[in-house]
């Protein structure tokens, strides 16, 4: 896998928490795990993140990023919207869907809707569909479009997305719990191979295989709606 400097910088930009799409407001159930004292140390956090990667990010979101990237590359708007619809259907907790679609809309507004490189049959089409609420506009789908437009390969797009998901959750964990910065980096280091493993396993998966199996995470996401403490939107 090689890439030019421009694409490499785009990957850094898309994976950076500096990207203003509200990522810092989402914990995807992590806040509820901590509310219920289910995460106590770095090992718990490491195990949880590995489970997220293997059961949600890989088989669900990576499949969405990869298929959205392919649909954008082929200029196939119908396929792109089908990816979005499928992701909406397999994302169970309401707050997970809301965090993802709000971030997706903001990424679209920022990097797709006003983008000169868009083509009428894909980039602009999805931006219009999101603007008109005719498709949910999930973040991984818009991410796939943006990555394809800017020359990232499908695998690079999946890796950048999965990595930013992990650092987003680690940032949330650090703000919610008592984790030191070196411990957080240690967890990141140890789950990095799982990021690669999940992305390589699912980068070529067909959209019809998109699914997640993380019942406890989904229950945490649903309980968070009525949580006694809420610092995060999900």
């Amino acid at each position: 896998m090689t890439t030019d400097s421009g694409s490499f910088l785009t990957a850094l930009r898309l994976a950076d928490s500096f990207l203003p799409v509200g990522g810092y407001t989402a914990s995807y159930g992590l806040e509820q795990y901590i509310n219920e004292d289910r995460i106590e140390d770095g090992d718990d956090l490491r195990d949880l993140l590995a489970a997220y990667l293997r059961r949600v990010v890989g088989p669900c979101e990576t499949v969405a990023v990869a298929n959205a990237h392919a649909a954008r590359t082929e200029g196939d708007l119908e396929r792109l919207l089908a990816v979005d619809e499928r992701l909406h259907a397999v994302t169970m907790p309401r707050e997970f869907r809301e965090s993802s679609t709000k971030a997706g809309a903001k990424l679209c507004e920022l990097l797709v809707a006003g983008d000169d490189v868009r083509t009428p049959d894909s980039g602009a089409g999805v931006a219009d569909a999101i603007e008109q609420n005719s498709t949910p506009g999930h973040y991984p789908v818009v991410f796939g479009v943006v990555a394809a437009d800017r020359g990232l390969s499908r695998l690079e797009a999946c890796l950048a997305h999965a990595y930013s998901f992990v650092t987003g959750l680690l940032g949330a964990a650090q703000r919610l719990g008592r984790f030191g910065h070196t411990e957080i980096q240690s967890v990141l280091e140890s789950v990095q191979p799982v990021v690669t493993e999940a992305c390589e396993r699912y980068v070529d998966a067909d959209v019809t295989t998109m699914s997640s199996f993380a019942p406890l995470t989904e229950i945490m996401g649903m309980r968070h709606e009525r949580a006694g403490r809420r610092l995060f939107m999900s």
Partner: peptide, 21 residues
């Protein structure tokens, strides 16, 4: 109500996207 993930200044300055939403 908008939750800002324990980062109130981020929500109004660096990344106001959820407030704008």
């Amino acid at each position: 109500g908008v939750e800002t993930g324990a980062c109130p200044h981020t929500g109004i300055r660096e990344d106001p996207s959820m407030n704008l939403a």
